[in-house]
Amino acid sequence: MAVYTQLDKDDLNQLLTDFDLGSLVSFKGIEGGIENTNYFISLIKDGAKREYVLTLFEELDHEELPYFIELCQWLSDRHIDVPFAIQDRNGIGLKRLKNRPAAIQPRFYGEHVGQTDLTPEHCAAIGKVLGEFHVAARDFYLKRQAHRGVFWWRRESELIAPKLSVEDQKLLKDEVLRFDQLRENPSNIEVGTIHGDLFHDNVLFQGTEVSAVLDLYNAATGFLLFDLAIVANDWCSNPDGSIDRQREEALLKAYNQARPFTEGDREAWAILSCTAAMRFWLSRLIPWLDKNSEQKLKDPDELKRILLFRRQNPSQLPD
């Protein structure tokens, strides 16, 4: 979340004329994040004050966004706490403001929990919610190719290879190949709608309970287990790249209760936990090695350490 597009009171009042949400009281830009412009907006209606989040989409265009608008509404209708576009008087949720696609969404309350403060209880809570998310989205009627999926990492791993050490070139190539081999013989690994970016800073907590899952704009169709692996690598890792077994066990057991693992899942877990680490290692390497990149930099070695640990210490899914 960040502020790339500046808005004034007139901009917001013009947008609000299409809605029955009330009158503008105040607004404030939300700092942080790297993709969209976000504002908290306070409105008053019939004497009651309510809070919303206005998002202006800076990267996704109007043609790409219906997938995400429909998905968030679908999940919300099935009691998954995610932001969704509130519809105007004509039933339209996806609007346009300052030549950007825009949506007004409910504001969720809670706290982000720092990575070093995550406990087994936090991990169990997100495991349960992610399993419920996957079950709720099982019959979702739209499909989407991941923006940074298999075709992306095949291409980008080749393009970036000349900038890497021989050792890192081989590590990337090996992981791309391992996933390709799995993809050719996927057994009964369940495919469905995934969040695609469920790092700890995309979740709000109240105590140890999840109050909202945020930022679904990397959602796509993929292996459900890959989504779980993204969570395990981020939520259960230590600074040295090792995996905290207590946190991972809590995560996996809670997820399994919401969506039981298949035998194919059990066979694929060791590979997909590496694939998830490789994918985010690569996406961090690209801007890190580009001297002209204006993207917010994150340390790629964090994911490389996790990848190496996963390769040397594969874990197993619980019964």
Rank of each mutant, 00 (worst) to 15 (best):
I86R: 11
I86V: 14
D88F: 07
D88M: 10
R89T: 01
R89K: 12
G91P: 02
I92S: 13
I92N: 14
I92F: 11
G93P: 01
L94W: 00
L94C: 08
L94T: 01
K95A: 14
K95V: 10
R96A: 15
L97N: 08
N99E: 14
N99V: 10
N99F: 11
N99Y: 10
R100H: 13
R100Y: 09
A102W: 07
A103R: 02
A103Y: 05
A103N: 04
I104V: 15
I104N: 11
I104Y: 11
I104E: 08
Q105M: 15
P106G: 13
P106Q: 13
R107N: 14
R107I: 11
R107K: 15
Y109R: 15
E111T: 12
V113K: 09
G114P: 08
G114D: 14
Q115V: 13
T116C: 13
T116V: 14
D117G: 06
D117V: 05
D117W: 02
L118H: 05
T119V: 06
P120K: 04
P120H: 01
E121L: 14
E121H: 14
H122A: 05
H122E: 07
C123H: 04
C123Q: 06
A124F: 02
I126H: 04
I126P: 07
I126Q: 03
G127Y: 02
K128I: 00
K128S: 02
V129C: 12
L130M: 10
E132C: 06
F133D: 02
F133K: 01
F133E: 07
H134N: 05
A136K: 01
A136P: 02
R138T: 11
D139A: 15
D139C: 10
F140I: 09
F140N: 05
F140K: 03
Y141S: 15
Y141G: 11
Y141C: 13
R144C: 11
Q145M: 04
Q145A: 05
Q145F: 02
R148P: 00
G149F: 03
G149E: 00
V150W: 01
V150T: 03
F151D: 12
W153H: 01
R154T: 03
R155S: 13
E156H: 09
S157K: 01
S157Q: 02
S157H: 07
S157G: 07
E158I: 11
I160G: 08
A161R: 05
P162W: 02
P162D: 09
L164P: 08
V166A: 15
V166D: 14
E167I: 04
D168Q: 04
D168M: 07
D168Y: 04
Q169C: 11
K170M: 12
L171T: 02
L171R: 06
L172N: 06
E175F: 05
V176G: 01
R178N: 14
R178G: 00
F179L: 12
F179S: 04
D180Y: 09
D180K: 09
Q181D: 12
Q181N: 15
L182A: 00
R183C: 13
R183K: 15
E184L: 10
E184D: 15
N185C: 13
P186D: 13
N188C: 04
N188I: 00
N188A: 01
I189H: 01
I189R: 01
E190V: 10
V191W: 02
V191I: 15
G192H: 10
T193D: 11
T193P: 08
I194N: 03
H195N: 06
H195R: 05
G196N: 06
G196T: 06
D197I: 08
L198H: 00
L198Q: 08
L198K: 00
F199I: 08
